[in-house]
């Protein structure tokens, strides 16, 4: 039982406490603690290598943590079997960065795929559900097309339709705006807001797009080199005078602030966190 449950409060859909992860010998996440509240859009930001995509993989239960806890919808991912994680994922929608549609299947078949995998619904019910979701993402009438016939923005929207086909309680979106022009990107932001408002789901968006983050976020988590640099509202983020956050907000490359001894240890491979060159 989580601390919140123990004192009678409702647990947040996502609760991460002191999460430490490794990729081989290299430490990636270095003690991350954050949560996502019911019905909230949480944007996870950070530069390349900050650990934001890694955090998403752990929230989805795709990897096992070195230490720390990840609770999703009240369940500790570290204590779940593969089958239990698969069951939990029925309540989680994922819109992958590239859309991840199967090229050999029509758009409609792609969207219905989770229903085939996880339910015994009649085909007619599945088809109506898919068409409803296509209406929601403004792709009505596109169910018979193949993914190769769609534009980048349409593939993203189809991916959203598939991600929400089972009415998940949490939707995870990996770089939804990547590779899209500003108009299409803005429309996708509107879609995320509509989904949250109408379906009440919690949404985690991993992105490096500031404009998108400012438009949709209830709160923002900023990761920097595997550590939490900031968690708070957009307004609170703007008020931060931390140099690294200011660099992020001003889209400047982040100069690393280290002392000489640490730099030397890194060059000589003595930093425990960095491991050996493979």
């Amino acid at each position: 039982m989580g601390a919140a449950a123990a004192i009678g409060q409702r647990e947040h859909p996502v609760e991460v406490v002191d999460l430490v992860t490794h990729y081989g010998p290299r430490m990636i996440l270095k003690g991350v603690t954050m949560d996502v509240r019911e019905g909230e859009i949480m944007v996870v930001m950070g530069g390349s290598g900050s650990g934001k995509s890694t955090l998403l993989r752990y929230l989805l239960g795709l990897e096992r943590a070195t230490s720390g806890t990840i609770r999703v919808l009240g369940q500790d991912l570290g204590g779940l079997s593969h089958r239990e994680i698969t069951d939990l994922r029925k309540k989680m929608g994922v819109a992958f960065q590239g859309g991840a549609l199967f090229s050999s299947m029509t758009v409609g078949e792609n969207i219905m795929l989770p229903l085939y995998e996880h339910t015994d619904l009649d085909r007619s019910t599945m088809e109506i559900m898919a068409r409803i979701k296509l209406e929601v993402v403004d792709l009505a009438g596109f169910e018979h097309l193949m993914p190769a016939e769609l534009s980048g923005g349409m593939i993203k929207r189809a991916a959203f339709a598939r991600a929400v086909i089972m009415d998940p309680r949490i939707l995870f979106c990996d770089e939804p705006s990547a590779g899209l022009d500003p108009v299409v990107s803005s429309a996708l932001d509107d879609l995320i807001l509509r989904l949250r408002d109408a379906m009440g789901m919690s949404i985690v968006v991993v992105t490096h797009e500031l404009e998108s983050a400012f438009k949709i976020a209830d709160r923002v988590t900023v990761l920097d080199h595997g550590r939490i640099l900031f968690i708070g509202t957009v307004d609170e983020l703007r008020e931060q005078d931390n140099a690294r956050i200011q660099n992020l907000l001003n889209r400047r490359a982040q100069p690393e602030i280290i002392d000489g001894d640490e730099y030397l240890r890194r060059l000589t491979g003595e930093n425990m966190d960095e491991g050996t060159i493979q």
Binding site: T125, I132, M166
Partner: peptide, 11 residues
């Protein structure tokens, strides 16, 4: 009522 229930209503 989820989307499957609404789909039943539509059908």
């Amino acid at each position: 009522i989820d989307s499957s229930g609404i789909a039943c209503l539509v059908e």
